[in-house]
Design a protein around this nucleic acid. Structure first.
Lengths: 224, 224, 224, 224
DNA sequence: GATGAATGAGCGTTCATTCAT
DNA sequence: AATGAATGAACGCTCATTCAT
């Protein structure tokens, strides 16, 4: 391994060090109350150093999401390309992909959701902005394609697949964001994971075509 | 009506004047880019005056949600108390209540969602904090009770009703927050309302008990 | 005098207070080493207050020159419009106008010269920039018109009058700037005023038409 | 040539390399907007290396003027020492020396003027400071001696020769500084050189003794 | 109660300078 | 000698909040 290789590796290591520190501080202080100095202190670096690795505060913040979006995109792509899955299995795989995302790094996921839902994408460099946009688009697109295939096969409701994708994502990120504020609202701890399970169950059931058996028809039959 | 009564009414009127101005400014400039001075200008008052009616910026910000939460709580209460509704009709009423919330003031709803999902509830006065907490809790509680009744009647899946309530709220607020960022992600405009419709359709279908008739053939065989 | 009048007067007074403090600090620390905090301290105000009266540092700096430029423009205009002055008297009036400028506020004049000679006109508001530009242009223009009239009357050398104006101004501001650095170069103090006198004398003599009688006269006499 | 000699020569070569790079960057970005990193990049060196050859930024900046001042001093010395020049020719030689200075490196001359007129001579090493001081003094001194000789011979006005020297230098540097800002004031381009010509013409005429023949009639009457 | 000028802590960011390699 | 990552003091500037009028 040459000198250059080591330098590149060191550089990447430093970036990760800063990113790790950012996560910790964002977690403990909240994103908007975190200052560059806080992160620098946590990373045991000087404020100036952060600007060697990140153009500005927004860009550092946005960088946190890139990895996660890449991971998501890859997972969904894999789900889409796997052959011989039943519809139930495919939905289940999507659920697993998203739950995994949450388990790997719940705080990052909250950041990602915030990023999408808020006004941070402002001072960001065009390149990074485009990258985030593209990754978001592609994940949704892949999810949408999974639904499109299911619809073709008659195993999903005939609805705009992109809208189905959005509904699923909204359900997921809505719950994740809720989790963040649950302390304030003193719901029990670790309510999230079981609730996500239920959310997916309901979505899975709801997206299947055909009249659910719940409705009176059979019941009346019973009485007749 | 005594002098005191009028003073109280005047005071409340002023508060509403400020709240209305805040909404307009938040709408046009975005929440995080709005300063106290902006709001004061819009309300044709001085910054100092705002501090007579609101303890600080966070408290003003939080007040915006109070009305909406009250409205929501009332609507849900009404849905819960209405007699002689089929399950489908009851879910439909909840849908209507939430859609109405969105239609009355989409931006305020985004604010509300932000408020819950983020870091504003910090400098707030204990009283206001308790009020928001209580209203949120009560809305969810009411929603949860609606589901509990349905579960009792066997018309909803036997799941923790609070979790069902959370799933529905997450789906709703997740989509609303998405709406805010959709311009960046170049989804078509006014994608939200039809998507909300689909979201409710899926939730409604998914929450019903019984094996969905996804694979029609055997099911029919069963009935024949 | 109404309340409004007093407020306007107070506001102007505050501006002058800041300007006066700026001058003092610029003088003692040098322009580029003066910080907003320095000026605020000197004016016994807080840094924030300066930004109520001046958009930014550059604008405060530029404002220092406006008055002086206005004064200059007025003086030159008066010189130009005065009737029945001999050429010598007119040049003398210009000299007096410039010397007066120096005597009223030598430091301000140095600032003005710096402003023109350097890179400060950068963050300035377009309006202020245009004002400075316009005032500079008009002063030079007036000076140039004075020369043009003299040339027409045959009492000045037939040279581009704008160039004559520039030469005079350069001589003047060059000496003023020199003055600032004279401490470093340990020339005697108060060398400037007598040197300015000589400068004007030489300019006045040099700008007159006709072969100076210095050497030629006797020589030609010799040949006749 | 010994090793030491070569080392010294190499060292000097490196210095010149840095100086040359500085000039290029100052030219393209303007002095105040140039950072050490800019210069290092242009010189294809690292910032640290610059500090091996120059004590600090001010010292590097000041070094730029040394060459020019040396050149000026030499030229003026030559003018002074040349025998058998008429007064007109001697003034003309001074003019040529200064114009040459401008033509060799107009931007460096602006720097020099700035340096003298402003606040850079501060963090400079005592040695360098003394050197600049000495060179400036000597150039002015030489110029002054040229005038002194002319005065003795009766071909120049009997004025303090150092003041005459200052007036000439002020005129020159005033015009050079003006050039820098002329774009803003939309004077025609390349106005400088012809204006410098006129400046010298006027100075040359003005510095000659005797009553100028400005108002021909009475003067001739006098001689008849 | 209403004002709005004044405050000043605190922010993100820059960049001359240092120093371990 | 050369490097360039790291430093951290210092900057200009903002804005929620206060308080004399």
């Amino acid at each position: 391994m040459g000198i250059q290789t080591r330098q590149i590796r060191d550089r990447e290591r430093r970036r990760q060090q800063i990113i790790a520190a950012s996560k910790r501080v964002f977690t403990s202080k909240g994103v908007s109350r975190t200052t560059i100095k806080d992160i620098a202190d946590e990373a045991e670096l000087s404020p100036g150093t952060l600007y060697i690795y990140f153009k500005n505060k927004d860009e550092l913040y946005a960088s946190l999401s890139i990895r996660m979006l890449k991971h998501l995109q890859l997972s969904l792509q894999r789900v889409k390309e796997t052959k011989d899955l039943s519809d139930d299995q495919r939905i289940d795989s999507v659920k697993k992909a998203l739950l995994e995302l949450y388990e790997i790094d719940p705080l990052m996921l909250i950041n990602l959701s915030h990023l999408q839902a808020s006004e941070t994408l402002d001072n960001i460099s065009p390149e990074l902005y485009e990258q985030i946009l593209d990754l978001s688009r592609r994940s949704l697109q892949t999810l949408s394609e999974i639904f499109a295939k299911g619809i073709e096969l008659g195993s999903f409701l005939k609805r705009n697949p992109m809208q189905l994708a959005l509904v699923l994502w909204a359900m997921f990120s809505g719950l994740v964001l809720w989790e963040e504020s649950k302390r304030s609202l003193d719901t029990r701890k670790d309510f999230l994971k079981p609730t996500l399970e239920i959310a997916f169950e309901i979505f899975g059931r709801g997206v299947k075509p055909g009249e659910p058996v719940s409705t009176p028809a059979p019941v009346r039959a019973h009485f007749s």
